[in-house]
Simulated assay, not measured.
Amino acid sequence: MTRAIMTADLAILYEHPQWFVPLFAALDRRGIAYRALKPGTAFDPADPAPPAPLVLSRLAMSAFLREAEHPIFWAQSLFAQWELAGARVLNGTAALAVDTSKARQLALIASLGLAIPATRVVHRAADVPAAAEAIGFPLVVKANIGGAGAGIARFDSLDEVRAAVADATLPTSIDGVLLVQDYVPARGGTITRIETLDRAYLYAIEVAGGGAFDLCPADACQVPGSAITMVAVEPDRALRDAVEAIARAASLDLGGVEVMIDDRDGCPRFYDVNALSNFVAKPQDVLGWDPHDRLVDRIARWLDETRMRASGIEEVR
């Protein structure tokens, strides 16, 4: 699908067929021309021409759930080529490198002095029992690259872990890396997802999933009978500052960070960085405003900045 003419200054690479309809509609309302690109064709690594001076990545880590021949690693090389060709890729290679590794996310968060769940990272199933003994029970084993709660299993004893190893029923990750992680009892059974735009706080929602691991808040994730509930919240300044620090360190132009309050000690534990923010379902009902409008406002300014750089004009701040 291509919107507007080939000379549009904005291109959007996306994979999910439904999540970005509201974004496209908001751009159309503002009269901002763009090319909407879907993975599916070969690219020439020697091609010097990116699709547009400004590219927005809307690539979801859950892509592997929808297509066995997913574009996640293909896109890493594609974004690198576009950046080398002079395009500005929003949520480009630096952000994608963080998005594609929960282990890297946790290391980044811990390097900022923030708390994470106790974790061990392994690449062999045989190493999981020893890692589990080091963590203690209950625990979860999760895929290094997941999405929509995929690749997460809870274990309550070492016997259960050993049986899963013997039966080859442990979760798997498309990169072969697994995390063995403390099962944190989240206070009130809820997690908080804090969204950022251009490294700054945008909004936060409290999500309860009835014990489920899939806490995707978007329209396309909501199905009849879903136990997920969402409510807007205003996190305290410390949490907002922490999330903005994570967004800066992760090179997130747009993205969400998930945190839960450990009911054992009241400590906020950050555990997930998600560069794919498709925003909350029914935003007018939950938030009272539509974050797509603010995203489009920032895209318009990014476009202006890109055009100014192309014409040799320095932005005045």
Rank of each mutant, 00 (worst) to 15 (best):
M1P: 12
V184Y: 06
I191C: 09
R248N: 05
L59A: 07
A126W: 05
T306D: 01
R35K: 14
G146P: 09
L276W: 02
S173L: 07
A49L: 11
F64L: 07
D285E: 15
L65F: 04
W19L: 13
D285W: 06
T41Q: 14
P171M: 04
D156Q: 08
W82V: 00
D44S: 10
A46K: 13
G312V: 06
A245P: 00
H70P: 02
R301T: 04
P283K: 06
D265K: 13
D219G: 05
T100H: 09
A212W: 02
F155L: 08
A126R: 15
A97L: 06
S77T: 12
A87W: 00
D265P: 11
I174N: 11
V121C: 13
A220Q: 11
P138Y: 06
E234L: 10
L178N: 07
Q18H: 13
V243T: 14
L202E: 03
D241R: 14
R301F: 01
R307Y: 00
G113H: 07
I116Y: 05
A310C: 02
V98K: 04
P53K: 05
E315T: 13
G86E: 03
H16F: 03
R66N: 12
A153R: 15
T2Y: 04
S77I: 07
T172F: 04
L239P: 00
T41A: 13
I191H: 11
L10M: 03
P51D: 02
A204N: 02
G113L: 07
D265V: 12
I109D: 09
G40A: 05
G225E: 04
V207T: 15
G92K: 03
L252A: 12
R317V: 10
E160T: 07
D297C: 08
K282G: 04
S101C: 08
S277C: 15
P185M: 05
V280F: 02
A218W: 03
I5C: 07
T41K: 11
A75N: 09
A126G: 15
A232C: 08
G209Q: 10
S157D: 08
V273D: 06
L303S: 07
I313E: 13
D44V: 01
S157N: 06
L287S: 05
E314C: 07
S226E: 04
T229S: 15
W302E: 15
D293H: 12
E305C: 06
D198M: 12
F270K: 10
S62L: 05
Q181T: 13
R187N: 07
L170F: 08
A80N: 09
L197D: 01
I194Y: 01
R120T: 09
W302F: 12
G288L: 06
I313D: 03
E305R: 15
R120H: 12
G151H: 10
L179R: 11
V55Y: 00
D47P: 01
P45Q: 07
G255A: 11
F73V: 13
E67C: 11
A300D: 14
R307P: 00
A245G: 15
P51H: 01
A52G: 05
L139S: 10
L295N: 02
P117C: 05
D198A: 15
K142Q: 11
V259H: 08
Q76R: 14
W302T: 01
F24V: 13
Y183D: 14
S157M: 05
